[in-house]
């Protein structure tokens, strides 16, 4: 069964996530986002009180992290037996 598993980290680009799995993830995100409207928030920063603030922050942060990490590769990547 594991053969059909999608690769989220994309080691194989053709193995993109299947629809059902993705839809489930989308649903969860949507529910959580909507739930935020019913929460009584009192964060320390004003932006924390916006609905979905943490979700979108996570999305943004992951994007930035991945981009910077890819950039970092340009500087530090060497052959695996570099030290040998």
């Amino acid at each position: 069964m594991s053969q059909e598993k999608p690769s989220v980290s994309g080691r194989q680009d053709e193995g993109v996530a299947t629809g059902r799995r993705l839809r489930l993830l989308g649903l969860i995100c949507m529910v959580l986002f909507l739930a935020d409207f019913f929460v009584d928030k009192h964060g320390h920063h004003a932006w924390e009180n916006l609905p979905g603030a943490y979700g979108f922050f996570g999305l943004l942060a992951c994007g930035v992290l991945a981009l910077v990490a890819s950039l970092l590769r340009k500087f530090v990547e060497r052959d695996e037996d570099y030290y040998d």
Partner: peptide
């Protein structure tokens, strides 16, 4: 939210070919 959207971000990044 933070966790779920991060997983979502991973999916998106893979789709866009930006994931390391």
């Amino acid at each position: 939210q933070l966790i779920a959207f991060s997983v979502g971000a991973a999916v998106l990044l893979v789709r866009l070919g930006l994931y390391p």
